[in-house]
Each structure stands twice: as C-alpha cells, then as structure tokens.
C-alpha cells in the first residue's frame, strides 16, 4: 500500500515512509501520531507570512514534527528532522477549537513544519473549525499529491506555499526532493481554488533564479503575493553567508515580468514589507519586520478593500463568509 499524501508515495507495507508519520494498519493508511503537536502558539497572520488575507488577524498556530523534505538550510531542523525525542502533546479537534474560541482566534494555522505529514489531523480540525465559524490555513512545501492538494484546498481557506526553485537539480541537491514538478502543478491548482501566497527562501545558491521565478509566478497569476526571504542558512549550512540585502532589492527592482506584490523580508528592519496599491502606487498597508519570517502590521489604510487614495479594489481578502453548521 502506497501513501497518497505526498509525491514520494512511499510504500507503507514495507515501512513507515520517508516522513515516518504514516503507517498501514487494519487495511488503511493511518497517522502514527494523530493530533500530536510540538507547538501551539499565538501569532499574527502577517508572521506566517500571509499579507493579503484578513490583515492584522491573530492566529492560533499548530505545528507537529518531521518532514517529507530534508532542506540543507532548514531553520526548523530541530522539529523537521529531530535527532532526539521531542516534547509533544495531544490536542484533539474539540480541544483546538475550544482553545481558539477561548482566545478569540478567528483563524487556526498549521505551520512550523510541513502540514502534509499530519494532514489527516489538520483536515479533521479544519472541518470542525469551519463548523464553528473559524477559518484555517496552512504552510506547505507543496510536494503534496494531487488528491491531497485537492482535499487541502477544499478544507483550508489560505495557503502559504514555499517554492524554492524552478530547477529539479536544486530540489534534489538542497531539499532532498526528486523534482519541483508537483510543486508547480499544485501552485497552479491552488491559485485557482483558494487564497495562495508564495514564499521563496533566497540563498546565494538560488538568488540568480529570481527573474525566472518572478516570470513563472506572473504567468500563473500576477496577483499572487510573493515573499522573498533573505534566508539565514541554518542546519547543515549554518556557516554559509546570507544573500546581501541590497542585491535582493536591486534584483527585484530590475524585474520586468513579475507579480504585482513582491515582499523582501526575513531580516529585521526590512523596508520592503509594505503593500502599495498596484493602480496608483500609494501605500495601503505598512508593516514592520521584527526579524524572522513575516512581519507585523503597523497601519492599515484600506477602506474596506479599497485604496484610500484612488478608490480601486485591492487584491486583499478583508472579509470571508464563514460556513457554520
């Protein structure tokens, strides 16, 4: 029996698969550690980063452990590739939803590690959350199967997908994944079915790919927000130097074929995390980068979803009709 959550499609009859999170038992594929988490925390949606979906909303963030990739520069290797037993805890869907309600979180986000390795748990929580008027989203490397991507797109309200490169060779060398093809396929699919934002960690090994990545994303949909992370290499590359800030800025400035919204962050004090109206160029949201990952909202000048300067509609979700039981 082969697992159908990610494109490794591991044979579970012969073992537990690459991520070590699934097993084949009683005739079905099962999670080995259902509803088991390594982290549960309060965050702001901009920190995911998600910049164009309910700005300034607080999120309840859950992360499990392990991963289906093995990124050489992983910032969360202690969780994604733990070398020792982790301190984990179990939170059932009812407990998560109760926690969200008690803390008045309107959004539950599955992040920290790859959501695919705990997808059944995340989907069950998402279903119960939706019944209770709570939105859900996830962060993913995008190496899901078509069927998993479809299930996730139906369950979650937003995605941040990490596209590291357009090259199979980069995926093989730096991520331990055989190909980028399923990731590109899933981006095209998710862009049509849900709110999608893309993050690309930039190292000195892929900074030359920025123009090609920009052009490819623009060909999918220019409205997809694109977050360029100045990656501080960790894990196996912890001694590698990060790319220079102004090199990134100058590269982005020179782009011609590109998405409308490009953000440069993952370093403290970044001035390139604000949103500007693509029609008149005025600033509609200001943010502050206090360090790792996304940013924090400073000021939201939108009038509903309209630019306060020229009145044009912005590509930002400011309200979601919630499904309730």
């Amino acid at each position: 029996m082969n697992c159908n959550y990610c494109e490794w499609r591991c044979s579970l009859t012969r073992g537990e698969g690459r991520c070590r999170m699934y097993t084949f038992k009683d005739g079905v594929i099962q999670e080995k550690y259902p509803f088991t988490w390594s982290r549960c925390q309060a965050e702001e949606i901009e920190k995911v980063p998600i910049f164009h979906f309910l700005p300034d909303e607080r999120i309840l963030q859950l992360g499990s452990f392990n991963c289906n990739a093995s990124c050489a520069y992983c910032m969360n290797a202690s969780i994604a590739e733990p070398q020792q037993e982790l301190a984990t805890f179990v939170l059932q869907p009812e407990q998560v939803v109760t926690l969200a309600k008690r803390g008045q979180y309107k959004i539950i986000h599955f992040g920290i590690n790859e959501v695919t390795v705990s997808l059944p748990s995340a989907l069950k929580i998402a279903a119960l959350a939706r019944q209770n008027g709570i939105l859900t989203g996830c962060s993913t490397n995008g190496f899901l199967t078509e069927e998993a991507a479809a299930a996730a797109a139906a369950a979650f309200d937003f995605f941040n997908l990490s596209l590291k490169s357009l090259q199979d060779s980069f995926y093989r060398q730096h991520l331990g994944l055989p190909t980028v093809a399923p990731v590109l396929r899933n981006i095209r699919y998710l862009a049509q079915h849900t709110h999608l934002e893309i993050t690309t960690p930039i190292t000195k090994d892929n900074e030359g790919e920025i123009p090609a990545l920009a052009a490819w994303l623009a060909s999918v949909n220019k409205k997809i927000p694109w977050h360029l992370f100045r990656l501080l290499p960790a894990h196996k590359l912890e001694h590698a130097a990060p790319p220079a800030v102004m090199t990134l800025v100058n590269t982005v400035t020179a782009l011609e074929d590109k998405p409308y919204y490009i953000y440069i962050g993952n370093f403290v004090g970044s001035k390139w995390v604000n949103t500007h109206c693509r029609h008149c160029g005025e600033t509609v949201i200001t943010r502050l980068s206090d360090g790792a990952c996304g940013a924090r909202l400073q000021a939201n000048y939108l009038k509903q979803d309209l630019c306060p300067h020229c009145g044009s509609r912005q590509d930002i979700v400011v309200e979601v009709n919630k499904c309730t039981a």
């Binding site: 982290r39 309060a42 452990f65 202690s78 733990p82 020792q84 982790l86 301190a87 984990t88 926690l99």
Partner: peptide, 8 residues
C-alpha cells in the same frame, strides 16, 4: 501554550 522549544 506558546512553548517553542521542542527538545526534551
């Protein structure tokens, strides 16, 4: 809630 350090 909010414990970030995963290692035992």
């Amino acid at each position: 809630f909010n414990s970030h350090f995963p290692k035992k």
